[in-house]
Simulated assay, not measured.
Amino acid sequence: MTRASELAENPRVPLHFDDGGPRLLDITSALGTPTPDTAVYVCGPGGFMDHVLEQAEALGWPPAALHKERFTSSVTESAGGKAGGFAVRLASTGVEYRIPEDRSVLDVLLENGIDAPSSCRQGICGECVVRVLAGEPDHRDDVLTPDEQAEGLFAPCTSRSRSQVLELDL
């Protein structure tokens, strides 16, 4: 017996397929009406996740209630970043580091002995998130919500800058 057939015969495991038919996931029924004490967690292939998250938002689920775990980033590069690189200033010391086009902020910080936590280095886990105190980030992560981005949070493993200088709360 294959693992797929084992799952198919298990009454506690509903299988849904994206090619239609009776096993197509009814997201409206699965998610229901948003309630303040409920969160939605989604993991799986990118297309599936994007569909579930879009439908959840359409049903009125607030972004803060939607949690996702991706295995690769879904964010493509923005055209708004500074060509030729930019500088990152650390608020604690005032020291600036040049970030070239082909390097991440996180890589440059670590290379210079700055204690910056990190894990995935793909913008999907949130371990490296820091606060921007000045400058305009070019968000290229897949972990921060729009509200968190607006609050000044920044993922230095993948995100860039639209301004000449970003000042980080480090």
Results as ranks from 00 to 15, higher is better:
Phe86Thr: 08
Val105Ile: 15
Asn112Gln: 10
Lys68Arg: 14
Phe154Ala: 01
Ser104Val: 14
Asp26Pro: 06
Phe17Trp: 11
Gly126Asp: 06
Leu66Val: 09
Ala58His: 03
Glu96Gly: 02
Leu66Gln: 03
Arg23Lys: 14
Asp169Gly: 09
Pro22Ala: 12
Ala56Phe: 05
Pro62Cys: 09
Ser73His: 10
Gly44Gln: 09
His16Cys: 10
Ala150Asn: 04
Leu15Thr: 10
Ser163Phe: 01
Pro117Thr: 07
Asp37Thr: 13
Glu148Lys: 12
Ala39Arg: 14
Val52Cys: 06
Val40Arg: 01
Thr158Trp: 02
Glu101Lys: 13
Val165Pro: 10
Ala83Pro: 07
Asp141Cys: 04
Phe17Ser: 06
Gln164Pro: 00
Asp107Gly: 07
Thr35Arg: 13
Gly60Glu: 04
Ser92Thr: 11
Pro63Thr: 09
Asp107Arg: 12
Glu96Ile: 00
Gly113Ile: 09
Ala116Arg: 03
Ala8Tyr: 03
Glu6Tyr: 04
Arg12Ala: 14
Pro156Asn: 02
Arg89Pro: 06
Asp138Gln: 11
Ala134Tyr: 11
Ser118Thr: 09
Val42Met: 04
Gln164Phe: 00
Arg140Asp: 10
His67Lys: 08
Leu7Tyr: 11
Val105Asn: 03
Asp141Lys: 05
His16Tyr: 15
Thr76Ser: 15
Arg121Leu: 04
Leu170Gly: 06
Arg121Thr: 05
Val105Gly: 03
His67Met: 08
Glu151Ser: 14
Ser163Cys: 04
Gln149Cys: 12
Pro137His: 04
Gly44Pro: 03
Gln149Trp: 03
Ala65Tyr: 01
Leu90Ser: 10
Val40Leu: 14
Gly135Ser: 06
Glu77Pro: 06
His139Arg: 04
Gly123Ile: 04
Arg131Val: 09
